[in-house]
Design a protein around this nucleic acid. Structure first.
Lengths: 198, 198
DNA sequence: GTCTATACTGCGATAGAC
DNA sequence: GTCTATCGCAGTATAGAC
């Protein structure tokens, strides 16, 4: 592929995104400068503006891509079994997806307030779509009589909060494997939405 | 506010803390300037340094005060009843304490990475003390045979994550009262750590 | 496509007058 | 205790050379 010396458009774009991802996750959007991102990529700050109109778009792109991949991956995987089977699948999927993308997840939760109002609305919409997927499972289980959930909307938010919390403490190579973590959380989720023992 | 020449040391200090609390919660520590805080209080930026050595100390003071009040309030309230009664009390206390201090809670969770390493260690220590309080309840319940928790440490983190998640959606004046929210979450916590139905 | 250079604005923090 | 003024530096973003 013949290419002018000094031209790297095919790889510089993704490299900028990865650098921004890593820096935003570690220091926070507001604390990261365009100069820092450029330095990590190995270009001058001005060159970043060949790839993004501004810093805000860089953040929004990362968050939108993450949420869209989350939704698309779940929709491709979601089956049509029993509510119990679907809930277990959701639980294990959520933990695995989030634990394998800690930086994206951290940004998606912590940087919402640094989005412009229009961009915030888009991300909130995607988040709502994902929550709806779980809520539908819970409602189906209540209807089938296998779940006992007084308020499916709140149960949805409670389960997602509990599962996403894994990201605050899990470190690969630690005491527990991913599989073990999934099983421990599934035990709690299953019981929390189930019929209470006598 | 009409200011007269003279001293306001008794009220300016707390006003600075409240302004910083509100601004940090809404915009994030890194995105808030000392000039903004000063403007909210009604003084010039330089005057802030009569009350705090620097911006970092302002953040640390807010987080430390919050965590110490959380711990002290719980310790003053924690009883010595059955594990089940203590767990219900913890659940209701946690929700009520956190929902009545949304700004402090938001900062305590979101601004950890903006603490200096030494300050971070202090806050993490206080957080660990609080987690230990719940973990002790769970272990006592397991020992008494009333809880079924395969991993008390993880269950502690899971329950706290679930309960603290209330702050992301609850708005006073909404569909549910504080009392109703407490009851819904207590239903899930009780079942999650309980013996699974057959 | 990337560089150098820079415009313009804002930052945290300090000094000294009152 | 607060003010005005300022230091030194960093921020985002742009312009024009190559």
């Amino acid at each position: 592929m013949a290419r002018t010396a000094g031209s790297h458009s095919d790889i510089t774009g993704p490299r900028i995104q990865r650098a921004a991802l890593s820096l935003f996750a570690r220091q926070g959007y507001a604390a990261v400068s365009m100069r820092q991102i450029a330095a990590q990529v190995g270009v001058q700050a001005g060159a970043l503006y060949n790839y993004t109109p501004d810093k805000q778009s860089l953040l929004f792109g990362l968050m939108r891509d993450h949420m869209e991949e989350l939704l698309a991956t779940w929709r491709a995987r979601a089956g049509s079994g029993s509510p119990m089977a679907r809930l277990e699948d959701f639980t294990r999927f959520h933990i695995r997806f989030h634990l394998t993308r800690p930086e994206e997840v951290f940004i998606a939760y912590m940087e919402l307030r640094n989005l412009s109002p229009e961009n915030f609305a888009v991300i909130e919409g995607l988040r709502g779509d994902y929550e709806d997927a779980l809520e539908e499972i819970l409602r189906a289980g209540v209807e089938a009589g296998v779940f006992d959930v007084p308020d499916p909307k709140i149960a949805t938010l409670a389960v997602i909060a509990m599962l996403t919390g894994v990201n605050t403490w899990y470190r690969s190579g630690g005491r527990l494997s991913l599989e073990e973590v999934e099983t421990i959380y599934w035990d709690m989720v299953r019981k929390a939405v189930g019929v209470a023992p006598a």
